[in-house]
Design a protein around this nucleic acid. Structure first.
Lengths: 333, 333
DNA sequence: CTGAAAGCGCTAACAA
DNA sequence: TTGTTAGCGCTTTCAG
């Protein structure tokens, strides 16, 4: 084991000097610095980060709680996180929690046990027990994408309500008046906001809300497939369906075609997220593009602010969406 | 900071006893154990894992080098890794390297600097410098999915050559004789093996190899789209195309349709991987299913064997593939 | 600018 | 079964 002491001996200086040379080379005389660096090279010395972190009480690790890495939208958010973190000298520990609260709590514990400095949570749930931190310390956490209503920390999200309203209005603009919606899990704030936006659009257009046109899904292609089956089987089937995720929209399109109907001729379908496959579906998906990578970058910036004590109270940032019109929606006929 | 010493005082025992109670409760008398656990609770004590790991010289962290988490195939491998790791008490540090060697080297350094115990590399590249470890220590690494020819460590992979041969034979069996192939990057062992399997099948059927029917892609839908464009534009266009990944196959299908041809009526298309979207493409994709999660589980098992010193030389495991026939391939007409 | 020395919080001999 | 003690490898006062 080649440690700092060996290097010190080799260079003929004290361990303190070696430490200083490595951390703040500028406060060391050029001559000693050269001696030390030479010794470091000769000894093939690599500082034991375990010890460094232990001693300096910070790890420069960020844990990211992801509901599921199998979702390509989250993959983009994660890219943004990694890019920003790396730039600031932090490493990212990705945790695929499958949305399970126990998993989230387990990984969040890496912060209380000082294996990581903070967490970025991509789901609306606070993984820390109430007594994990001293009363008025700010939580070392940032909530992104799906955000708690009373987030106990800074957060970044989309204006989901406005985005859902925009895409519903696009559908209404095409002449659709019976518009189905395949939504996410009931209790998600994401779903609630998007349903609200959908209702806003209907109301503004003077269309009565038909609750039975709202089907729950699970953000997977298969659940979209199932939900579309319900919607299409009705006598008074909708002429357009807004899906809360592209994955569900892709499943829905397959089902609609299987039932012998055409998209968009018989039924228009809109998605949400603009994942890579959205433009490769047949027909290509009309959807809401989210600035996924930007969510990641923002989240990192906010978290580091908290960790380095530069924050003044929890912030809430809203990032812009964009309506992307492709071939899966068309004028009602 | 509530540390082990505080707990010891509170319980009226030595720090060693507290440590023991937490690590091996059974070698401590029930009475002391109760006292200690009570004190732990009262003090709200959480061991500083940083210190634990530093002291015990192991982190129970595994770093996983993933070329890109945006690929849903890797997402499945990662699930398998996480599941197995968790079971064995290890945490997973996911590193999205984008296939960049500098990134891989940076993350691999977490092992030499003792931030992690070992690495699972999903790409055919050794991220460690030659002198990172003592000459005949086994590398704390396992190579999975895409494997180095002379892997300096244990590895798990598919019999890519046989799988490619099987799917090509499926195409030949349907009467196709001009079969294009959209392959991956030239230098990948994966590509080399799959091209070899493709050639095997042709040869066995007495079909001459036409090199110009092999187009390189990059495993993305877009690259499949481009490559298919080349293939389809030819006068002597193939009647079937074998793509080295489902993502490329999905891109290829879109291009073929855009050129006014039908899949599979005019051109059959086969993929590789069996990602979730494979069964939701139109038509659903004929492909090779890989036991992605099993790759992950195997890799963890092998790595832990190495880390805990129970290995006897590098092993090589081959996992089985399965030909999944769906609607994108049909009899030539 | 450099060195000596005191730990960080914990584990692991070794003794008792 | 429990306590004492000596560090792990590093950073950081505090003197010099």
């Amino acid at each position: 084991m080649t440690n700092i002491r060996k290097v010190a001996e080799l260079a003929g200086v004290s361990v303190a000097t070696v430490s200083r040379t490595l951390k703040s080379p500028d406060i060391v005389s050029p001559r000693t610095r050269d001696k030390v660096l030479k010794a470091v090279r000769e000894a093939g010395y690599k500082p034991n980060l375990m010890a460094v972190q232990f001693r300096s009480r910070r790890t420069r690790n960020l844990v990211v709680l992801v509901p599921t890495i199998a979702n390509t939208f989250f993959a983009r958010v994660i890219s943004g996180i990694q890019e920003a973190a790396q730039q600031q000298g932090y490493s990212v520990l990705l945790c695929n929690t499958l949305g399970r609260e126990e998993s989230e709590a387990t990984y969040a514990k890496m912060v209380t046990t000082r294996q990581a400095d903070g967490v970025i949570q991509l789901r609306a749930y606070n993984p820390f027990p109430a007594d994990a931190f001293a009363p008025d310390t700010p939580l070392p956490m940032v909530n992104a994408c799906e955000v708690l209503d009373e987030a106990p920390c800074s957060s970044v999200k989309l204006d989901n309500r406005a985005a859902a309203r925009a895409i519903t209005e696009h559908l209404i603009g095409l002449g659709h008046r019976r518009i189905g919606m395949i939504k996410g899990p009931r209790r998600s704030p994401l779903t609630r906001d998007r349903v609200a936006g959908y209702c806003d659009a209907l109301e503004a257009a003077g269309i009565a809300l038909d609750e039975s046109l709202l089907c729950p899904g699970k953000f997977t292609p298969h659940s979209g497939y199932e939900a579309a089956g319900m919607l299409v089987a009705r006598d008074d089937r909708p002429s357009a369906i807004f899906c809360e995720s592209d994955e569900m929209a892709i499943g829905a399109i397959q089902r609609i075609k299987q039932e012998g109907l055409r998209v968009p001729d018989d039924i228009s379908v809109a998605g949400f997220d603009d994942i890579a496959f959205a433009s490769f579906s047949d027909p290509p998906l009309t959807t809401i593009a989210q600035p996924a990578e930007a969510f990641g970058r923002e989240a990192v910036a906010m978290l580091i602010e908290v960790l380095e004590g530069r924050e003044e109270g929890a912030k809430q940032r809203i990032l812009p969406y964009e309506l992307v019109i492709r071939g899966s929606t068309a004028v009602k006929r």
